[in-house]
Simulated scan of single mutants.
Amino acid sequence: MAISDWGAGEGPRDKLLQRGAQAVSDAELLAVLLRTGHRGSTALDLARELLGRFGGIRGVLAAPGQQMLDCPGMGESKVAQLQAAQELARRQVQEGLAEGDLMGNPQQTRLFLSHHLGGREREVFTCLFLDNQHRLLRCEDLFYGTLDGAAVYPREVAVRALQYRAAAVILAHNHPSGVAEPSSADRRITERLQDALGLLDIRVLDHIIVGRGQSYSFAERGLL
């Protein structure tokens, strides 16, 4: 059943419009995006199925596309709608980072990195390049694969930092396993990058590891 088939004032879309987005549940919000259900089930039923399968709204939005397509009632159109919602959220947070001091708002930085890296199926090494007021100049994914299996070259990070005239960087990568604790390889590459960029008078402000619903900050743990 499609949301358009609900009676006036009965469906989640009407509830959202009449009472505001904060008045509807996660399942109802998700149903508005999905619009239709499958085989006699409503969009709300499908939304509840997805939330249960992926462990909540964060899991749904971060789920790989193929896993979504394997769910009954989920086609390419619905998957694209959810991916678009996730990307809009990421870009909204990124715009905010470009306007302010990243080190003055670490929660916002972590939120952005969670959106940016949380749903990746393989490890991605990202750099946030900042100006001398710690405003975001550029976010760039530089290396892919595990830090042991895919080399992270300090020279490449330095070249990008000089290209963007960055005064500081925040390093970040994800752990697809979901565990945010740093490995020995994570610690080694952080030290190498800190030493290499320090020669250019470019500060490494933090290295953030994104796990499943959690993150780890080298700066907060006193490792920088």
Results as ranks from 00 to 15, higher is better:
107 Q>T: 13
117 L>N: 10
176 P>D: 07
152 V>C: 14
184 S>G: 11
119 G>W: 11
139 C>V: 15
139 C>K: 11
113 L>C: 12
134 H>S: 07
185 A>R: 10
151 A>D: 12
112 F>P: 00
178 G>R: 13
153 Y>C: 11
174 N>M: 08
132 N>Q: 09
105 N>C: 07
104 G>M: 11
114 S>A: 14
153 Y>W: 09
101 D>G: 12
103 M>I: 11
163 Q>H: 13
131 D>K: 04
157 V>D: 03
104 G>D: 14
151 A>K: 12
155 R>T: 13
186 D>N: 09
108 Q>P: 00
161 A>Q: 06
108 Q>W: 01
119 G>K: 09
115 H>P: 08
162 L>P: 02
118 G>H: 08
106 P>M: 08
127 C>V: 11
148 D>F: 05
103 M>R: 11
121 E>M: 03
104 G>V: 13
166 A>L: 05
144 Y>P: 02
126 T>I: 02
168 A>F: 03
171 L>T: 04
106 P>R: 05
163 Q>A: 15
160 R>Q: 13
108 Q>L: 08
154 P>A: 05
118 G>K: 10
120 R>S: 09
109 T>P: 00
152 V>I: 13
116 H>S: 10
126 T>K: 01
138 R>T: 11
115 H>V: 07
142 L>V: 03
131 D>H: 03
150 A>Q: 10
177 S>W: 00
175 H>M: 06
101 D>Q: 08
163 Q>V: 09
184 S>F: 12
141 D>N: 11
144 Y>G: 06
174 N>C: 08
145 G>H: 06
147 L>S: 07
126 T>C: 15
108 Q>T: 09
114 S>F: 08
141 D>M: 02
161 A>G: 06
103 M>L: 15
110 R>F: 07
154 P>I: 02
154 P>K: 02
110 R>Y: 05
167 A>D: 12
116 H>I: 01
180 A>I: 01
174 N>W: 04
175 H>L: 04
182 P>C: 09
106 P>L: 07
127 C>H: 02
137 L>Q: 10
167 A>W: 00
126 T>Y: 01
114 S>Q: 15
110 R>K: 09
113 L>K: 10
135 R>I: 01
174 N>S: 09
139 C>E: 15
104 G>S: 14
102 L>D: 00
183 S>V: 06
182 P>M: 10
187 R>A: 14
165 R>K: 09
153 Y>T: 08
110 R>P: 03
154 P>H: 01
161 A>R: 05
141 D>W: 00
156 E>Q: 14
128 L>S: 01
139 C>N: 15
101 D>T: 13
